[in-house]
Design a protein around this nucleic acid. Sequence first.
DNA 1: TTGTACGCGTTATCAT
DNA 2: ATGATAACGCGTACAA
Lengths: 343, 343
Amino acid sequence: MGSVNIKDIARMCGVGVSTVSRALNNHPDINPVTRDKIMRCIRENNYIPNNSARNLKRQEAKVIAILVKGLSNMFLIGMTKTLEAEIESRGYSVALERIKFEEDEVDVALELVKEKRLKGIIFLGGDFEHRVDKLKELDVPFILSTAGSEPDMQDSESYSSVSVDDIKESYKMTDYLIKLGHKRIALLSGKSDDESVGFLRIEGYKKALKDNGIEFDEDLLIYMRDDIEDYSMENGYVVTKEFLEKKIPCTALFAISDTLAIGASRAIHDAGLRIPQDISVAGFDGLDAGMYSYPSITTIAQPGEVMARETAKILFDIIKGKGKHKHKIFDAKLIERESTARR
Amino acid sequence: MGSVNIKDIARMCGVGVSTVSRALNNHPDINPVTRDKIMRCIRENNYIPNNSARNLKRQEAKVIAILVKGLSNMFLIGMTKTLEAEIESRGYSVALERIKFEEDEVDVALELVKEKRLKGIIFLGGDFEHRVDKLKELDVPFILSTAGSEPDMQDSESYSSVSVDDIKESYKMTDYLIKLGHKRIALLSGKSDDESVGFLRIEGYKKALKDNGIEFDEDLLIYMRDDIEDYSMENGYVVTKEFLEKKIPCTALFAISDTLAIGASRAIHDAGLRIPQDISVAGFDGLDAGMYSYPSITTIAQPGEVMARETAKILFDIIKGKGKHKHKIFDAKLIERESTARR
DNA sequence: TTGTACGCGTTATCAT
DNA sequence: ATGATAACGCGTACAA
């Protein structure tokens, strides 16, 4: 009784295995009567088809994999929801896979393609700086969604991408803060060795400073710690606390994620400073968490839903053969909230 | 060139498939020289074994599945991390599966057992009120972790469970608020038809009121909306806003999750009320988010890490045959923070 | 130490 | 409409 299989069902119903298979996959050419008989038998015996065997044998699978880098990224989780809906509405199913920070998303993808006969892959987050060659091994259509928008990656015709312009958006926020009268703006960035999103947002920050005639000050650059979870509130709290203890003068802090900004805000409160009177705080992403914070966090809101829908559209166009690979960049929106004020 | 398989590798190396297989799974009895030759060939040709075929053939798989109900539950995500570490440290690998709210976790489990030859299953969250019979179909050891601790489920000897006593902990918080002088305490609970955690926490709340001679007032019971994501800040915000507009007198609000409490806090601010001076707010779970909020949220902190470690321990004891199924209940800790004050 | 052959549970092909 | 049978790619007993 370890496990009942298709053969057992066939024997019990007095039919061949292929008939059972037909019933299972509601094939057209099968007598409705036998079909019902078989289905009843299946239910009565709690028969569950073995997916490994199915995947092994099946030719085409109508499955799209979504590979998310990091499970705790709320922004990506939100996109996942939209993506799932989009994919399922097209009659495909979703294989959601979570990639740990130390894992290589491309390796996982390669494995998954073999295992599940995927029709397409969506990479959510993650950085692909040095993996472009490896990506080419993938022989199914794939799309990089909200990965760092490095200019040199926009060229390829072998895959698609959807993202915001991290440099531009970071510039936008920095410029906004400067226009509010801030001159000494701390930047709470990624890990010190980040060559993707974190790096790009630093670039935008520097560019905005330069265009406004403000000199870049290394002391105002705060790096995320790599012994604490990436982009966590805790990380934001800890590094901001350390920063504030150095008493480096500044009137604004721009964190490259809302979660970091929330942690930073708390550290600022704990230091006896008021937001935004003593110091303005800004984030990035447009998470709900920033909106329900007190004070609510001024942020660069990425159009997650729109991006997710476009991601699905591009991918399916390619799968259906009615489109080439595209590289699409979306505008994010600066949302002014309570955490920033004129200086 | 769609895909290179083990036979191709064997042919290219001039060896038999079993030798390649041995190299892959670093079997003991294989000549190191041939082994290296094969491994090099494998790398050069980007050969990746097909997991479906492996799962199909393999007898024992050393895989534990973690089935998480709802991807956005921060508390469960935290537990997942600890669980993964515990499982991997024992030489097993993890199959993490996310169950949508409308999906049946038991069905998914049943399927997964067949597909991956699991050694054990950990259910994280979810409610199993009416599925006890279905659970019995599972022929691998499993454990319910932080599912609602219904008394009648503690009996079974066919599975384990780890949880907090929801009634007791809810009682604890309610009693704490009462002792602070609050008499009219709003309860922000689960969906109106919740028969699991939400229901139990209402029970604890009612019991505390009764023991303190306070009459239960239906008007103070706020239900989560089911057209907004469960336990989200947005849900907490919306229902609290509606509640406040009714002007029902109350001096404290106890939400059955920290995320709900954060949303509620924002609604309270928006209504022009101060926390905790005008109204005290309390949560449940002990999330980081509540700690970094301003004001920080008084909460019932579940010992997530300890529970996760114990979950792994119990499960592996059973797998190794050196333990019976257990039902363990942990104490949660009331953490006083800024959001509650004496009346 | 290495190779051959069978079987895992299913779907696809080809008869009937 | 239905049944027998050959794959799918791999691991493993068994033979060499």
